[in-house]
Design a protein around this nucleic acid. Structure first.
Lengths: 197, 197
DNA sequence: GCAAATTAATGATTTATTCAAG
DNA sequence: CTTGAATAAATCATTAATTTGC
C-alpha cells in the first residue's frame, strides 16, 4: 500500500547526498560478483568495478569496498542466525536426535565453483608466501605512490583452470592489470543512464 | 624467508623493506602528537604529518594512520589492564574499602588540556551537526575526488582558546583548513533534517 | 493518495582481533 | 615480544520501506 512514488533522490546538481544509494543495476552486478565468490576485492579490482558501475550512476571506490565488507559480514551473520534456528529446530521437538546431516552445506557457495577465491595467503610457485588481498584501502594518495610497496598481488591464475565454463563473469576483470590509465573519467556523464527502481 | 623479496621501485637502494620501521624521531613526533591529544587524524592531518615526518625517513600516510590506530588501541588496553590491576589491588587486601577516588583520572589526558580533540560529532554554530573526523581512509584515489562530498571537517577552533600556553605543538597543522581548494561543488553543509533516533 | 511517524536496511566509521615481520 | 598491517565485528547514522491517520 505504499505509494509508488518511490523516487530515488537524484544526486543532481547542488546537493551532494551524504551517502551512496546504489541503483538496482549496481546492486545486481555487485551481488553477481559476490555470488561468483568475490569477497574482498583488491584495489585494482575495486577500481575496475567502480568504473564499470559508474555507467549506472555516481559511485566511488570506497562504496564498492564498503559494500563488500558489509555484504560479507551480513551474509555471514544471516548464515549464523539460520544455522542457530536450524539447530534449535532440533532442540525444539519432534526430531529424532542423531542421524542428521548436521554439517550440511553451510558454505556450499564457497566450495569450488567460485570465480574469485579469497585465500588470505597463498604460496606462490617459488614457495613465497604472498598476501593476495592485502590492503585495498588506505591509499592516502601519497602522490602517485599507490601500491608502491607491499605485496598487493593480483589474483594468480591459480584457479583459472576451473573457470573454463565461464558461466557469467559480468566482466573479466582481466586478472593481469591492463588498464592502468588513471581514467579520470568522472565527467558528469553518469546517472540517468538507466531507470530508477 | 622473503628471498624473492617483494621488489618495488625503491627510490634509492634496492632494499625492499616489507614494513615500515619508524625512526626514533618519527616515533618521538608521533608520541608527542598523541600526548597532545591527537587520536584519529583526518586525511589532511595525516598528509601533513606524513610530509613532516618524511624528512626523517621513508614514510607513507597509511603508516601514520596505522600508527595512531594501533597506538590508541594499545594504550587503551594497557590502560584497561592497569585499571584492572589497580582495582584488584583493592580486592586483594590491606586497603580499606570506600573513601578512595576510584573514578580518578582514567582519561585525564582526554579531559580538556588537549590540543587535538576528537569528539565524534559537534554542533556547529548554526546548529548543524557535523562529523569532525569522518573518514580518513579509503581514498581509492577516485581521480582527485578526495573528500568531494561528505562532511570531512577540519578541527574547529573550538578549544583553540585553551591552548594559548602552547607548550609544544610540533607543528600547527593549521587548524582551519587553508588548503581547501577543491573547486568541485560539494554542498558543504548537510544539515541532518532531524536528530531523532 | 499523501506524508508524518515508525521501522527496517544498509552505507559508513570505529573498535577489537588477528596475522606476521623483525 | 613488540608492533606494523590487515581483517572482522560492532556500532553509528542515514536512507528506504512500511505503517498509520487523515
Amino acid at each position: 500500500m505504499g505509494s509508488r512514488s518511490a523516487i530515488r533522490r537524484e544526486p543532481s546538481r547542488t546537493h551532494a547526498v551524504s551517502r551512496w544509494s546504489p541503483t538496482k543495476e549496481q546492486i545486481a552486478v555487485l551481488e553477481d560478483l559476490y555470488r561468483q565468490g568475490m569477497r574482498t576485492p583488491n584495489t585494482e579490482q575495486i577500481q575496475e568495478i567502480t568504473s564499470r558501475l559508474r555507467v549506472y550512476g555516481h559511485i566511488e571506490g570506497k562504496n564498492v569496498f564498503y559494500w563488500f565488507q558489509n555484504h560479507k559480514a551480513r551474509q555471514r551473520q544471516k548464515q549464523k542466525l539460520e544455522t542457530i534456528a536450524y539447530s534449535n529446530s532440533f532442540l525444539q521437538a519432534s526430531h529424532p536426535i542423531g542421524q542428521h546431516v548436521v554439517c550440511a552445506p553451510f558454505y556450499a557457495q564457497q566450495s569450488g565453483m567460485n570465480f574469485y577465491p579469497q585465500p588470505r595467503n597463498i604460496v606462490a610457485a617459488g614457495g613465497i608466501v604472498e598476501s593476495v588481498v592485502p590492503f585495498r584501502m588506505l591509499q592516502m594518495c601519497d602522490g602517485q605512490q599507490i601500491y608502491q610497496q607491499l605485496r598487493q598481488r593480483v589474483q594468480p591464475d591459480y584457479n583459472c583452470s576451473i573457470n573454463d565454463r565461464k558461466t557469467l563473469t559480468l566482466f573479466p576483470l582481466h586478472p593481469t592489470g591492463v588498464l592502468k590509465e588513471k581514467t579520470t573519467d568522472h565527467g558528469s556523464s553518469h546517472a540517468s543512464a538507466s531507470g530508477r527502481h
